[in-house]
Design a protein around this nucleic acid. Structure first.
Length: 443
RNA sequence: GGCCCUAUCGUCUAACGGUUAGGACACCACUCUUUCAAGGUGGUAAUCCGGGUUCGAUUCCCGGUAGGGUCGCCA
């Protein structure tokens, strides 16, 4: 009988939530859910100086925005007595000792607790990298705690995994070299050694570690910039893994658009890339557009209203019907909801709400406008669709030159040289307003 | 520097030793309801180098090179 899978995600609240943390959490989630396991969020705040409540909150906010839930939440600062017990055990067995130290820099203690390193070769199987061997003699007797109440990272980390019964440690590549000393502690404590899976790092375009300097934002900032959580999840799962890697769907070009459900079905930890992956904002933008397109009309409406520019919110409410009609037009032109907001704030689509005053120069000619008006007036208001409008005008436009006919029509309706095509414009404005605007342009 | 990890288009990636090395983003061209956006079609572009093993290496092994990680009383 196999043990139930138990995993954990262990961020330290020393900064705003990193996108890499989100990815590690996602991979943990996928693996855990696939195995019907339990996942724990562990706040590693043993560093009292650098840990801040606001960072902890930001991390939790990030997870809840992404919809990544945890079965339990542990906090290391609340577990001091437990670490003390384990420390005492090690001391009693002479597996660790209190060592007198030279005080080299500020904050150094005159004595610390060091682990008695037996100095052996440690080999472990990594689910992603395969077998990895380290000689731990060069580590020496490393420090595991400043005193009985103050364990440091390696020790608290191992004790908690032992206590939680963690079966799989899925974390970033940068922890590979920490693994042997943690295994040493596991052995000293007599605990089972978990299975490891070290994920490749997310890299900046210059292939170094991704940081703020490279334009990588905290996770909550993607939310605030108007990215959809589906897009962010989709993007990070593609960093180091691909739905194409599943043989059954690998034939001719699988799409990169993956929902959480599909990830759950297709994800395979063993197929994760070994190489670090460069963060590519353009692909995120593309994914966001794709997910925006896939929103239902009610969801789209919800998002647009959530993101109305504050200054325009009231006005837009009185013009709700028109806003609803142009929502698809807006979303077609942006990558993020914040851009949609900016589009509205800049008055890019104001002509839908107000009659524009097209300049004579832009209009160029009004020769055919009368004919257009007469043709369009033959249509009933309820038949006024882009399709029927096009049918009414198309032959005429082709005969007289499309530019000659279509251009003035667009300008008459929008007052601009850049706009959606005139048929769509007319359909959205409706019969009365369209005829009105043509008449206006003629005068 | 020691130790460890890694190496397919610019980027993300696919290819149980046999493929014209595939897809996606980006880019370019063309196309479309003479504009914008979206869409459609097509295109440019990669197996780091050198040795093995093999009838045959992107794939397996070794070496080199390059990049990254880590060497705290941070996590």
């Amino acid at each position: 009988m196999k043990n139930r899978v138990i995993t954990r995600v262990a961020p330290s609240p020393t900064g705003l939530m990193h996108i890499g943390t989100a990815r590690v959490a996602l991979f943990n989630h996928l693996f855990t859910k696939q195995n019907d396991g339990k996942i724990i969020l562990r706040i590693e705040d043993t560093d009292r100086e650098r840990s801040k409540p606001e960072f902890e909150k930001n991390i939790k906010d990030g997870f809840s925005w992404l919809g990544l839930a945890f079965d339990e939440v542990w906090k290391q600062s609340e577990r001091t007595e437990i670490y003390t017990q384990y420390l005492q055990k090690l001391l009693a067995e002479d597996l660790a000792y209190i060592s007198q130290e030279e005080v080299k820099k500020e904050g150094d203690r005159p004595s610390v607790i060091r682990f008695r390193n037996p100095g052996q070769k440690i080999t472990f199987q990594d689910l992603i990298h395969g077998e990895i061997t380290f000689d731990t003699t060069e580590l020496g007797d490393f420090v595991i705690a400043k005193d009985l109440e103050t364990p440091i990272f390696h020790f608290a980390n191992v004790v908690d995994d032992l206590e939680a019964g963690t079966t799989h440690i899925i974390r970033g590549d940068d922890h590979i070299s920490n693994t042997p000393r943690q295994i040493l502690i596991f052995k000293a404590l007599g605990g089972p050694i978990p299975t490891y899976a070290h994920l490749p790092m997310i890299l900046a375009p210059d292939k170094t570690k991704l940081s703020k300097r490279h334009g990588a934002w905290p996770v909550t900032e993607y939310r605030d910039e108007g990215y959809l959580k589906e897009a962010v999840l989709n993007f990070i799962v593609l960093l180091g893994w691909s739905p194409q890697s599943r043989a059954e769907i690998a034939q001719d070009g699988t799409e990169d658009i993956v929902s959480l459900d599909q990830m759950l079905k297709l994800f395979d930890l063993a197929k994760v890339q070994k190489k670090g992956a460069v963060f590519n904002l353009e692909k995120l933008n593309w994914l966001n557009r794709e997910h925006l397109k896939r929103l239902s009309s009610t969801e789209r409406w919800q998002k647009i209203t959530d993101w109305l520019p504050p200054t325009k919110a009231d006005f837009m409410k009185t013009n709700e019907l028109m806003l609803q009609k142009i929502t698809p037009l807006i979303l077609e032109r942006v990558s993020t909801l914040k851009e949609a907001q900016a589009l509205l704030a800049n008055g890019e689509f104001d002509y839908f709400f107000h009659q524009p005053k097209p300049s004579q120069e832009l209009l160029r000619t009004t020769t055919h406008l009368t004919e257009i008006a007469s043709r369009l007036s033959e249509l009933a208001a309820e038949d006024f669709t882009a399709e029927t409008i096009k049918n009414k005008i198309w032959d005429f436009a082709t005969e007289k030159g499309r530019g000659e006919v279509l251009w003035p029509l667009r300008v008459a309706l929008s007052g601009k040289e850049k706009s959606p095509d005139p048929f769509v414009l007319a359909a959205i404005l409706g019969r009365a307003e369209t005829l009105n605007r043509i008449k206006n342009a003629l005068s």
